[in-house]
Design a protein around this nucleic acid. Structure first.
Lengths: 204, 204
DNA sequence: GCATAATTAGAATGATCGCTCCATCCAGGT
DNA sequence: ACCTGGATGGAGCGATCATTCTAATTATGC
């Protein structure tokens, strides 16, 4: 046996993560199709040849990024859903989405829409989107079931489809600032809370 | 005065329209960044040199297409809003959106998300989106005001912001089939109707 | 300290991009 | 008939794209 050099998996993972974060910034700035490998390399401070030792293709970068991002969103979602009251938890989720928007600006929305548009044409991406959506939907549906048992949510609402509709409301809220830049965000947030509350409330 | 050849504005407009339609198909298939000028030319059956006598740039094609599409959506929206009952009109709008999805498939959604993502980075596009959104929102707000006078809508809801939120619900509904391909569309549509009805109903 | 494999850079590749340029064609006005 | 200028086609421009290749450098086990 001659000299062997062992790989450092920690360093490798760190570098990979760095590339992913750089790519994330590029995708926010230019979109998936608009972002270039050379731009991502510049952002990450590496050469193009090197990048291909960490990801086999540009598409793989997007897939890995989508995977990571959705995992963290789902995790945050799970944390919020642990709140005592169910409706309160949902409203907290809305607040969290709003806070994220304040921090990231409109660019944060662009990546979601880019991802949605791309997933129509990219089956692998669609699979990632659907898998995480299903996870979140199941979680939300469980929370709804709890609420129905506790009497705070209309028992006539089917949990799974209702969870899907609520998620679509959260998605739709992301279009608000794009369609109206002068939007009163607080007022709209209040209305969305009213909407959710009235939707879920048990009939009198 | 030497020989003069008069332009035929009708032919010109027709050809322009043809290019726009071809570009629309390409954008649905490949997205805005993904679609190529040569591809659009092939689809329209013309040469690249010729295309640039109708549009000064690829971006101009997208802008013109967005303008045309949103104008027709706004027109259809206006027609639906003319219904006698207000809430009924909204539910009819949801039905119309669903029918459009049945006809165009998921591609129809891709263009909207592409447009939304692109408008974050393209101010001209953002302007078009916002202008038409404002038109539709005003229209919807008027309808809401009517409903409040007639007593079918909660008078406590501020018309303009409420109209914005309702539009965002319609936007969000477009993510439903993407996040869940096995979705029971009819059930979700019914839930969305319930959501709108309960949201707008005057408190007992 | 040396061999070796992992790591890194950077040039080169072929394709494709949006777009321009120029030659040709053709339909009118005279 | 013939001139003229819009309509049209298509080659070609420089730039840039994602990706690959090669070569140099670095770090590790012996």
């Amino acid at each position: 046996m001659k000299a062997m050099r062992t790989v450092d998996p920690v360093r490798h993972a760190e570098r990979r993560q760095g590339i992913l974060e750089a790519a994330g910034r590029c995708f926010v700035r230019d979109g998936f199709r608009g972002a270039s490998i050379s731009g991502i390399c510049a952002e990450a401070g590496i050469s193009p040849g090197h990048l291909y030792h960490y990801f086999p293709s540009k598409e793989a970068i997007l897939a890995a990024l989508a995977e990571a991002r959705m995992e963290q969103v789902a995790a945050q979602f799970a944390r919020i859903m642990a709140a005592p009251d169910v409706v309160e938890a949902l409203l907290a989720a809305m607040d969290a989405a709003r806070a994220r928007h304040r921090r990231d600006g409109a660019g944060g929305h662009a990546v979601l829409f880019d991802l949605l548009a791309e997933s129509v044409r990219n089956p692998a991406l669609a699979q990632i989107l659907r898998s995480h959506s299903a996870t979140m939907r199941r979680l939300l549906a469980d929370v709804i079931r709890q609420g129905q048992v506790h009497g705070t949510i209309d028992p006539g609402l089917p949990p799974e489809p209702t969870a899907g509709v609520l998620m679509s409301v959260i998605d739709g809220a992301r279009t608000l600032p794009l369609r109206d830049p002068k939007l009163d965000a607080e007022a709209s947030l209040g209305l969305l809370k009213t909407l959710i509350t009235r939707f879920l409330a048990p009939p009198a």
